[in-house]
Nucleic acid binder design. Sequence first.
DNA 1: AGCCATAAGCTAACGGCCGTAAGTCTAGGA
DNA 2: TCCTAGACTTACGGCCGTTAGCTTATGGCT
Lengths: 212, 212
Amino acid sequence: MVTGVTNTEPRRRNRRGEGGKLRDEIIAAAVALLDEGGDERAVTLRSVARKAGIAAPSIYAHFADQPSIMLAVVQQEMDRLAVALREADENAGSDAEKRLFAVCNAYLDLAQAHPQRYRIMFGGLWTPSVDDTSISDADLESLGAEALTLLADVLRACVEAGIAHGSDDLYGDAVALWLGLHGLAHQRAVVRKMPGPADVAERLIKALAHLK
Amino acid sequence: MVTGVTNTEPRRRNRRGEGGKLRDEIIAAAVALLDEGGDERAVTLRSVARKAGIAAPSIYAHFADQPSIMLAVVQQEMDRLAVALREADENAGSDAEKRLFAVCNAYLDLAQAHPQRYRIMFGGLWTPSVDDTSISDADLESLGAEALTLLADVLRACVEAGIAHGSDDLYGDAVALWLGLHGLAHQRAVVRKMPGPADVAERLIKALAHLK
DNA sequence: AGCCATAAGCTAACGGCCGTAAGTCTAGGA
DNA sequence: TCCTAGACTTACGGCCGTTAGCTTATGGCT
């Protein structure tokens, strides 16, 4: 596609007090660049500015530097993911197995729907200057505290429903399950054609949830 | 560490007929840059040349362009990995469970020993210009054909030894097991401090191999 | 021993994109 | 009216990939 050139329309300036809107437009522009199939290298200050229809230095009013944009993107997508997982769980009713597959499939679907976003979120990189406050640790624990406890809850429900073998460490099992999902999601996001049978996801989930 | 500056010693030129040696030195230099903790962006034509003690254009005698260097690195490391897995299997004796853990741990250890190399191998990216002949598909099948059949063999041995529940698709199980290993290896390579218990690897392997 | 063709590698330079700093314009609202 | 939020223009320096042409040491040959 290579949409380098863009909007000749000059973009109306925001009203007074609404300057903060540009911040969201910048994030959206960065996400759009990723969704066009470009990797993180395609998200430069200047390309983001072009995409958003603004001048490059205008970004500095809202972000300290380029990595900060990526950080904001990751945080936003992390939130989206957490929300999607909770939604999937709530819409799955009370059947434990349905809940399990709903949550896991929601995770896999979101990753497959936006491969580049997923790569940014969990692929490392994008953190050249933010070495100390590296988000990978902090925000993975934030998602870890949110999504992993959700996974652990679902696993517990499965055990209590008698459809899964229990364990002395459900949180550890949740981590293992997540790692399996991550392996599949990441590989799908990277190679676009996975080797192996079509039901790998089901196999992974069943095995890691210790379904009977 | 930031070792930007380097060897003032001017590097003796190769003898006649041995010009090809430089090719290996270039690959080694690229790997060294990765091992220093830099991500793939640190592997530029010029930085590789500096590391190898040569002038940047000298690379063109051995590589068509910059992505070709990364491609060579990936292929070399893929081979290393395949060899390491076979070695681990052969040194594990004939006990099926020992073989299983030996192979899986060899995979995880190699990934943890060289996180950046692992990220390059399976993290996608590094292929900006090689879109059609993208190695991710071709060489993952090469490793997929090598390492995955090895995993399937070990799984079969476990089933035949009566320590694992069988399945109608051992290759599919091998893929699932590899995906779990990959998830753990990749996550370790990226965040440097994993959440969850210390025995996650064992849990993953046991669950995905369907050990009794 | 000396010659000289050639492999092996170097220097110089172009154009391009990048991040960022400094200063300037302009329209909305009190 | 006129202040100021919300942008823009211009510019500097740096690293990059790549091309074109030059230098130098090596080793087979006479």
